[in-house]
Design a protein around this nucleic acid. Structure first.
Lengths: 254, 254
DNA sequence: GACCTGATATTGTCATGACAATTGGCCAAA
DNA sequence: TTTGGCCAATTGTCATGACAATATCAGGTC
């Protein structure tokens, strides 16, 4: 398999496309191709079958195939070149490491997540919180602070401020389900998060909570998250043990 | 201006679309709308004119307008909802902070970047470098290490390994132009970078190079970057002073 | 007031069709 | 051997057209 020859994926891979179900065709095709990449069937450096041929083979329009491929390009797994075709990006994508996501509260690790709730209260928004949530200073917010653990080992101290409407959230729910699942169950559809990643030394309190030496290096992340109306639904300040946590970000040139 | 009413952008904003130039129409429209958002003309929470009307007004097809809007949605500045329309995400986007990019060698700050080259040599790839660059262990690479400064203040220590073909790069070019510009001038089109962001304590050497206290917290970033054939063109290990540098990442739900 | 139905508004998906831009290979001329 | 031109391959852009899914609103009924 080389970059010169196209890889023609076996039809068996696409035989069961659900043509009238709820899942868009482009999404299904995209999933199949991505699976072939991750499994090694489409090896690094190899060339994918061209859009026109693939569309003909699958009985789909070229824009639909194009959209499917673009989804994978946007993930950084494929690159496209006019006149050449579409190639698989080199480098193994390890399944072990999850990409940083909108819902990154340590539920996606392969370890059992749990929560130790430190604080759950109403709090009047100070200037910074007000600015971040787009509300008036002094407006009530839900303030929560928790240690997040994986397999009973503390990984992060996470502090959040949520808009007033979430003030009724129960501590049991937070402990049982995690913040983002609770928000989801309240109908929140998160769409965008702006994250600011840095580092600093741990405070004494953090060192104790995270079971690390005093004045250790901490990985930090501040964020504001927005829902599908574009409203801010979360302001967070998190710090993580760098020996147990890191951010994985894939950047793709448009 | 509220979410309920559509914002009809003045035609003047689109009067000078270059209809037969090299720049795609969707890109031009996208730029104009983005500019309106950043300038506040399209305020946070407001609703953009619908795709159909905008297409009619601009004399463009709906897919073209759609593509333009999608570009901005992908940047996290707009959110779309079926039946409702497209809204501007809340929260000021500060121009002061640049988003983490493929070419993040501190040239995008508002300070004068400069380089203090520590090492520029050929080096046989060890196991890790070989794996990251997709080459055989022992293959020659170009190894470089530099302190990167902004307004003569050291911000980062950046270490990189590049494939064999770049072994002729001259130190003067690196100092004058920075790594990524040099790569670009050699015809490298970078498309994808996989980055791993963490934190740790500084070594004694790093503390001296970065002019910080011993055992300070450092923000770290390891990365592999790939070109438009999907080949690895760079493996890097960088560390930054967290008081002077951080990563800004916007996550957008598909 | 709560619930249901129907209409409208808007985005989401998909197809067909056409043309343009870039890349690489091949061949001919200098 | 090198350079330039031509052609084929493939992605990139754009248009037209149609239908579906979701959200909101208005009106009617209980």
């Amino acid at each position: 398999m080389s970059a010169k020859e196209e890889n023609t994926l076996p039809m068996g891979m696409f035989m069961d496309l659900e043509r009238s179900g709820p899942i868009p065709l482009y999404f299904q095709v995209s999933q199949r191709i991505e699976k072939a990449i991750l499994s090694g069937e489409l090896p690094a450096g190899s060339r994918l079958e061209n859009e026109v041929a693939l569309g003909q083979r699958l009985g789909l329009s070229r824009p639909t195939v194009r959209r499917a491929i673009q989804e994978i390009v946007d993930k950084g797994l494929l690159v496209r070149r006019r006149g050449i075709g579409t190639q698989v990006v080199h480098g193994q994508v390890t399944r072990k490491v999850e990409l940083t996501s909108l819902y990154d509260d340590l539920t996606s690790t392969h370890k059992a997540p749990s929560t130790h709730l430190l604080t759950l209260e109403s709090q009047a928004a100070d200037a910074k919180t007000a600015e971040r949530l787009g509300i008036e200073e002094g407006t009530p917010t839900l303030h929560l602070r928790r240690v997040r653990l994986a397999d009973d080992v503390p990984v992060a101290v996470m502090e959040n401020w949520l808009p007033e409407e979430f003030i009724g959230i129960e501590p049991e729910d937070l402990v049982a389900h995690g913040l983002y699942q609770v928000l989801r169950s309240r109908g929140v559809t998160m769409r965008v998060a702006r994250q600011h990643i840095g580092a600093r030394k741990s405070t004494n309190e953090e060192s104790a909570l995270l079971e690390i030496e005093k004045n250790s290096a901490l990985l930090t992340m501040d964020r504001t998250a927005f829902d599908n109306s574009g409203r801010a639904v979360e302001f967070g300040q998190h710090c993580y043990r760098p020996d147990l946590y890191s951010f994985e970000v894939t950047l793709v040139e448009k």
